[in-house]
């Protein structure tokens, strides 16, 4: 079986002077194409570091990271940027939209880096925004003129506008109320059903339960792999 993401004995050790702090200790992980994976664990367990390795935001101290069949552990920063742009979409807990840009300008950023012409960008942005349930009238607005849930949908649109194959989300519902969190997870499920591989880091079991498989990480090691409780997925629960 071919995997879209494969981590083999991945270590990440942070050094501060002579002190070494291992954040990941030999992680092995395989994610199949089209899979929806949740990574859970307490704070400081290495969840975000693991996501950074998959998302090519950081390099492992040891071990291999293989994306779409290619070993990407030792790429140059330029090549890593290229893979991030074409293969990966990021969704952050704090949305990380740029305040001085309009929604349109925020969503089109990955396409700007790619050099896509303006006309084509507008079409792709609108398509992405509609896919996440956004509205065309948001395009001219500034992010601060939208609610938290709407901002996160804009952030998801930015993540998928370049048609990546993997969507990485770091606590995507951490800053949202339950209703907004539910909409976001519904969006993730919908995107996953359309073939997008989704990997999310979360504290929230009701978010993790929306996935196909839950990996539990503690002290930099995957200590448990368990199936989700489907009827406890926030996307299939009524709004309280």
């Amino acid at each position: 079986m071919s995997y879209i993401v494969e981590l083999r004995d991945v270590w990440k050790v942070y050094k501060t002077g002579d002190i070494e702090t291992p954040a990941l200790r030999g992680v092995d992980l395989r994610v199949a194409k089209g899979e929806f994976v949740a990574i859970m664990g307490p704070s400081g367990s290495g969840k975000s570091t693991l996501l950074n390795m998959i998302g090519l935001l950081d390099k492992p101290t040891r071990g291999d990271v293989i994306l779409a069949g290619k070993d990407v552990s030792r790429l140059s920063s330029r090549e890593m940027a290229f893979y991030r742009n074409y293969l990966i979409g990021f969704v952050f807990q704090r949305f990380n939209l740029i305040g001085r840009f309009s929604v349109m300008e925020n969503v089109e950023l990955p396409l700007v880096a790619r050099g896509v012409p303006r006309g084509e960008r507008e079409r792709m942005v609108l398509e992405a925004l509609k896919m996440v349930g956004g509205e065309e009238e948001w395009l001219r607005k500034k992010p601060t003129q939208l609610s938290g849930g709407q901002q996160q949908r804009v952030a998801i649109a930015r993540a998928i506008v370049g048609k990546p194959v993997i969507l990485l989300a770091d606590e995507p519902t951490g800053n949202l109320d339950r209703a907004s969190a539910r909409v976001v997870m519904e969006t993730f499920k919908m995107l996953n059903e359309k073939g997008l591989t989704v990997i999310t880091v979360t504290h929230d079991p009701e978010v993790a339960n929306c996935s196909h498989v839950i990996y539990v990480i503690r002290d930099g090691r995957i200590v448990d792999v368990k199936p989700p409780v489907k009827d406890r997925c926030i996307a299939s629960m009524g709004v309280v």
Partner: peptide, 9 residues
Amino acid sequence: VMKAIGFTD
């Protein structure tokens, strides 16, 4: 954020 979404150095 810009680097995460694909801007090169």
